[in-house]
Design a protein around this nucleic acid. Structure first.
Length: 560
RNA sequence: GCGCCUGUAGCUCAGCUGGAUAGAGCAACGGACUUCUAAUCCGUAGGCCGCAGGUUCGAAUCCUGCCAGGCGUGCCA
């Protein structure tokens, strides 16, 4: 448990005890304590913590909030919770001022836990799966996929740090219509390479990349597929192209710092009969009927807007049916929490997926879909136009060439997932503090520089617990300590909320506090005792920054 | 039409389960380098929190209606 949690728990407990004691003394009347909060006030003059308990009790106790606050304060016990002062303010807030001593505990803790600082056991080993990107293996990764990759990977990192057992998975859509389509497109490009005048399929894949793919095929196998039955030819072409595309996607994601535990093939669900089995189970549960030669799911009965097709009248199961089988498979593998990252264009699928889980007898709450809004690229203040029709777009690979992995990952995580993301290419390339990534990385590099020089000057680093940390009294030092102490709470809460953007926000704040400290406090030229305490502080910031950047998938450079 | 998301400073966005006087970064303006990396720091200015009601001690936050933008509303995925 983090020192912040411990502190907050003990103050809350003392508040509750105070209320019960007041009741015992016959001064206060209530049945049950309301759900009150203990929070950090915006305004520092309101102390380190404030509680609204007295105001919430006013109605039931039929006493003015300020009077209740007085009673609570009278019975409030300060032992063991670092509370130095208690005061009543405003409409009935109880404000607490703490002995700064509690903050100093953060440094020995961070130092001792080192790379584990920030981790917790909130998840208690619960088995969770994060499925993300899952782009069709028929093309290249675009900006939407890139955002999904950065967000998904960071969410997985967060959950891992919060004590969950996490597996990352990529669902390969290697079946169904789009593969059919892919085959037609490949075939057309293939034949075109031999100067045959074949029309390109209307809904085909226009990307230039598949022209390269067929060229590679020709390089390897020549005209082997030229005089061949069309369906057989497509089968060969698709098989080759899927392998190539998938290998490419894997490579790009690896370069982006994303490594999956499982690559799951949709086709395998068809081959194993899992799709059929899922439909049978839905049927057994009474949610399936036949109409117009197709099999339908009784969506309306499950709260959907309309019924949905599971198997088309041509006998082929829909993507939906396969997805139902897929999620059933996930649950059968023992995951009790499934997290999917989907683009906003798939949001209507969320309700359908949850309805299906319900129909299978599972709790829909076991699935959380993080829906991401669209990404717009900006360059020179102008939107970079992308065309799906012509296949002209900036890929994740291009983006990394342009701005680097660190900036790309940081920028994608910076915004809340349900907010549109304007990605400023110029800013991401900028090597200055205007670029939020550099700003944070620079703080880390500066710290490393100080520690390096200390070492060069032969200053031996002392353990935090052996330093006189009470010498750290400058406001910028206290704020830094407070921020470091908060880190484990931040990680836990960002994980449970599935909100990685809290990390980048915190990163900017922590780096800012450090830069401020840096200009106001000297480390190496201070008196030895103070110097050692500050070295310890700076080291605590280093550990926190490094762990933080690691969660985001961004490097923490020692020099810049 | 219906469903989901969004609307907060000039721009890009935070604001956790409702809490005290609404925040950050950038842009603007004014300052700070003999001293551990100026890729930095400090200060100033900037707001009917889309609009209108409601809930209550208290609303950017919850509810309802409206306005604006995005996405969706296939036997596509």
């Amino acid at each position: 448990m983090s020192i912040v949690d411990r502190l907050e728990d003990s103050i809350c407990q003392a508040l509750k005890d105070a209320a019960f004691q007041a009741r015992e003394a016959g001064e206060l009347d209530f049945e049950q304590l309301p759900d009150f909060v203990l929070e950090v006030p915006r305004d520092k003059s309101h102390g380190d913590y404030a509680s609204n308990l007295a105001m919430l009790m006013a109605k039931e106790a039929r006493k003015p909030p300020r009077l209740i606050a007085e009673l609570l304060v009278k019975h409030f016990r300060r032992e063991g919770n670092w509370v130095a002062e208690v005061e009543i303010a405003g409409p009935g807030f109880i404000n607490f001022r703490l002995d700064p001593g509690w903050l100093y505990q953060a440094l020995p803790l961070a130092e001792e836990q080192d790379t584990a600082y920030g981790r917790s056991n909130a998840g208690q080993g619960r088995k969770v799966q994060v499925e993300f990107v899952s782009a069709n293996p028929t093309g290249l990764l675009h900006m939407g996929n890139a955002r999904g990759a950065a967000l998904g990977d960071t969410i997985a990192n967060l959950l891992d740090a919060a004590g969950f057992y996490v597996e990352k998975e990529y669902y390969i859509n290697d079946a169904g219509n789009q593969i059919e389509n892919f085959g037609k497109s490949l075939e057309a490009r293939y034949l075109q390479q031999f100067d045959q005048d074949v029309p390109f399929p209307e809904d085909g894949y226009h990307g230039e990349d598949i022209i390269d793919t067929v060229k590679n095929i020709i390089k390897r196998d020549g005209d082997k597929y030229l005089n061949m039955d069309s369906s057989l030819r497509r089968e060969f072409l698709v098989k080759y192209a899927l392998e190539e595309k998938l290998a490419h996607i894997k490579g790009v994601l690896e370069r982006f710092g994303v490594n999956y535990d499982v690559w799951f093939s949709e086709q395998s669900l068809h081959d194993s009969g899992a799709v059929e089995a899922a439909i049978r189970e839905l049927d057994a549960n009474g949610y399936v009927y036949e109409k117009d030669g197709a099999l339908w799911l009784k969506g309306e009965e499950l709260g959907l807007e309309k019924d949905e097709v599971l198997v088309r009248n041509n006998g082929l199961p829909t993507y939906y049916a396969a997805d139902i089988a897929y999620h059933r498979n996930k649950l059968e593998r023992g995951f009790t929490w499934m997290i999917n990252l989907w683009g906003a264009d798939h949001h209507s699928h969320v309700a359908r997926m949850k309805a299906a889980l319900k129909a299978l007898g599972y709790d829909p709450e076991q699935l959380t879909v993080v829906v991401m809004q669209l990404v717009r690229l900006f360059s020179g203040g102008e939107i970079v136009r992308m065309s799906k029709r012509t296949g002209q777009y900036i890929t994740l690979s291009d983006l990394m060439d342009e701005v680097g992995k660190d900036a790309a990952r940081y920028f994608f995580v910076m915004r809340s997932h349900d907010s549109h993301l304007d990605f400023d290419l110029d800013l991401a390339k900028e090597e200055s503090g205007e670029n939020p990534v550099y700003y944070v990385q620079y703080a880390h590099a500066r710290i490393c520089s100080i520690l390096r020089q200390a070492q060069e000057e032969g200053i031996s680093t002392k353990e935090a617990s052996r330093c006189n940390l009470a010498l750290l009294t400058h406001p910028s030092e206290l704020e830094l300590l407070r921020k470091i102490a908060d880190f484990p709470v931040l990680v836990r809460e960002a994980a449970l909320a599935l909100e990685p953007h809290r990390l980048t926000r915190y990163a900017g704040e922590l780096a800012g506090l450090f830069h401020n400290f840096y200009t106001h406090c000297r480390v190496l030229n201070s008196e030895p005792e103070l110097r050692d305490a500050r070295l310890s502080l700076v080291n605590g910031v280093r550990i926190t920054l490094r762990n933080l950047l690691t969660l985001i998938g961004v490097t923490a450079p020692e020099r810049m």
